[in-house]
Amino acid sequence: MEKHSLIDRIKNADADKELRKIYTKYREEFLAWSINTHKCTEDEAIEVFQQTMIVFYENIIIGKLKVFTSKVKTYIFSIGKHKILELRREQKKNDSYDSDYQFDERDIYINEFDDEYEKKMMGVENSLIQLGEPCRRILELFYYHQKTMDQISELMEYKNKQTVRNLKYKCLIRLRQIFKGELDSLN
């Protein structure tokens, strides 16, 4: 029941407080495990742990993780293991680029596509900074943290969910305008 409540608290109450508790509780052990068992450097271990916590959080908010079938620690470490393997695959791929990799024209397209997408993501992020508050928070609460209009209304102390719906719409339209300007300045 306590485990169920943890998911509920992350989804519905103070997610920061709960995440921070878990983060500080398992950080040292995770770093020691990834350094000793998986030969990560300390920087890699920290990065992997942070990515792991992001996956942990996102699995809860999108509803992929509804109830723990194992210990919280076991779940976190199994995500971590996948992240380390992902990192190793990426490094192996980069190493082969450096040494004996055979040039393939299709890779240029893939890399350009990735770069282009990344650039757009950074463009939206910059536009959100320009957009300012409360719009940025409303949009992030809705699209990233998967909060409902009711929850946003309660969290941000708005009159009701209709107010939030209208504001969210206006904020998205405004974000689009700023982002267009951002893209134009880049091109």
Binding site: I54, E58, L128, E140, Y143
Partner: peptide, 19 residues
């Protein structure tokens, strides 16, 4: 793109908090 970008920004915010 906008929805993905907002998620990207939210994720970075969370990473900053962890730092």
């Amino acid at each position: 793109i906008l929805a993905d970008g907002i998620k990207y920004s939210g994720r970075n915010e969370l990473l900053k908090k962890m730092q």
